[in-house]
């Protein structure tokens, strides 16, 4: 039985329907990936799911397409900004190879480092929570192969009940062991499972 989270999603951009009563028959637990070309509506799908989740009390972590770090907070403060314990945030950052950068501001970090801080922030918010949801929008963009593998392993170790990944890179999906849905659009539709 599919989750209500993914049923009847609609959204438009500049008058053009991107999600037209889109429904994905997915269970409430697992790791799933929507794989498709840029601009087909994957991010809009994730945002629509996020909007639904915000009406619930389920713990939520979101790696946006952009890093969206708070510029006046250090890496550690950013990772713990959801209210997660600073110890967990520190553990995640250290596991991602950022031990020496905990006290640095986003402006002092490289693009790849900022990406890892964004990932640590999302994971800290939902780590190990069975009803938690982790939304990942091209999460490993800008990371080298070594850091991609490190990040994927960390997501696997700390993942909540439901992980939803959207990407145009199939390697990201396989690194997370996700069930892949090939999509196309707009409007978004499933091309193959």
């Amino acid at each position: 039985m599919g989750s209500d989270l993914f049923a009847g999603l609609s959204a438009s951009f500049e008058g053009r329907p991107v999600l037209d009563n889109f429904t994905l028959d997915l269970p409430d637990r697992g790791v799933f990936c929507l794989h498709g070309p840029s601009g087909c509506g994957k991010t809009t799908f994730l945002r629509a799911v996020c909007a639904r989740l915000l009406r619930t009390t389920r713990p939520l972590g979101y790696v946006f397409q952009e890093d969206r770090l708070f510029p006046q907070l250090t890496a550690l403060q950013n990772a713990a900004v959801s209210g997660a314990s600073p110890a967990l945030a520190k553990e995640l950052l250290c596991a991602l190879g950022l031990r020496g950068s905990l006290g640095l501001l986003p402006a002092e970090l490289s693009g790849g480092m900022r990406r890892r801080v964004a990932l640590a922030r999302a994971l800290a918010a939902v780590s190990g929570q069975p009803d938690g949801v982790l939304l990942l929008d091209e999460p490993f963009t800008g990371l080298d192969e070594n850091n991609k593998a490190l990040s994927a392993a960390l997501v696997a170790a700390h993942r909540p009940g439901l992980v939803l990944l959207v990407t145009h890179d199939l390697q990201e999906a396989s690194a997370l062991g996700a069930q892949v849905f090939a999509v196309q659009g707009p409007p978004l539709e499933v091309a193959a499972n």
């Binding site: 996020c50 915000l54 946006f64 969206r68 006046q72 922030r121």
Partner: peptide
């Protein structure tokens, strides 16, 4: 974008004011 992040991480209005609006 930061406002959206603040909503996702369920900031209180005071925290949103402090971390997004005041800067």
């Amino acid at each position: 974008q930061l406002l959206e992040a603040a909503r996702v991480y369920r900031f209180s209005p005071q925290k949103t004011l402090r971390l997004v609006y005041l800067p």
